[in-house]
Amino acid sequence: MPRSHGRSGYRWRKARATLMAEAPDVCHICGHSGGANEADHEPSLKTLEALGLDPCDLRFLRRAHGTWFRCPVCDRACNQSKGDRELPPAPRSSRAW
Rank of each mutant, 00 (worst) to 15 (best):
F69K: 00
G6A: 00
P2H: 07
A39G: 07
G31V: 02
A64D: 04
G52W: 08
A77H: 04
S8H: 01
R11L: 12
D84E: 12
S44E: 05
G35V: 09
G6F: 09
R16W: 01
A17Q: 12
Q80G: 09
A77D: 13
P2R: 06
R63N: 08
T47K: 13
Y10N: 13
F69R: 02
D75E: 15
N37Y: 13
K46L: 07
A36W: 06
S44Q: 04
C30H: 10
S94R: 15
E42M: 13
E86G: 08
G6Y: 05
G34V: 03
C56Y: 08
K14D: 09
L19K: 03
M20Q: 04
F60G: 02
H5K: 11
W97N: 03
G52N: 02
A64N: 06
L61R: 01
C74P: 10
P2W: 06
A50K: 11
C27A: 09
K14T: 07
A77R: 12
L48F: 00
L61S: 07
D75F: 12
A90P: 03
L45R: 14
A15Y: 02
L53C: 03
G66F: 04
L51C: 14
H65N: 03
W12N: 01
S81N: 11
E49T: 11
H5M: 09
T47A: 14
D54K: 01
E42H: 11
L45M: 08
S44D: 04
I29C: 04
L48P: 02
R11S: 13
Y10E: 13
P2Y: 05
A50Y: 05
G34D: 12
Q80K: 08
N37R: 15
Y10S: 10
D25N: 08
A15K: 10
H32W: 07
Q80N: 10
R3A: 14
W97Y: 11
P2I: 13
L51Q: 15
M20I: 01
S94L: 15
A15V: 06
P89M: 05
E42I: 12
A23S: 10
P89T: 09
P72A: 00
S94A: 14
C27Y: 00
D54T: 08
D25P: 08
H28A: 12
D57K: 10
L53H: 10
C56N: 15
F69Q: 09
A36Q: 08
P88Y: 04
A39R: 06
R59A: 15
A36S: 04
S94E: 15
A36N: 05
V26E: 09
P55T: 07
N79W: 00
H5P: 00
D25Y: 06
N79Q: 09
